[in-house]
């Protein structure tokens, strides 16, 4: 490499470079979409059901059992017992 080429190279290194138009925005959008995929956006009902399904099942099962019990009375327990051989 002669002196002239060396000077050109140094100039090229010193020159400020900027990414092509729209590249930054595209990269940010890609990263955002990847993050959204990892942590999906949930509605309040989905949050209640899917974040802690065991807790949701507890909350749902109590009133459901109460309602069935209120309608069927002790016959519900009797029916359940009859199913268990």
């Amino acid at each position: 490499m002669n002196d002239r080429e060396m000077e050109k190279l140094i100039k090229a290194i010193d020159t400020d470079t900027s990414p092509p138009e729209g590249l930054k925005k595209e990269l940010i959008n890609k990263v955002m979409s990847l993050e959204n995929r990892a942590a999906p956006i949930l509605t309040p009902i989905e949050k209640f059901l899917f974040e802690k399904p065991l807790r949701a099942a507890c909350f749902i099962s109590l009133p459901v059992t109460g309602a069935i019990w209120a309608i069927m009375g002790n016959s519900f327990a009797a029916m359940l017992s009859s199913l268990i051989v």
């Binding site: 999906p40 989905e46 059901l49 899917f50 399904p53 065991l54 949701a56 099942a57 507890c58 749902i60 099962s61 109590l62 459901v64 059992t65 069935i68 019990w69 002790n74 519900f76 327990a77 359940l80 017992s81």
Partner: peptide, 26 residues
């Protein structure tokens, strides 16, 4: 005891249903 047992059976059923919909969704 009968009420608690009934609640547990329904709870497991609801839990299973929630997990089913989680598979569908996620």
């Amino acid at each position: 005891a009968a009420f608690i047992i009934c609640t547990l059976f329904i709870m497991f059923l609801v839990w299973k249903a929630i997990l089913y919909f989680m598979i569908m969704r996620f």
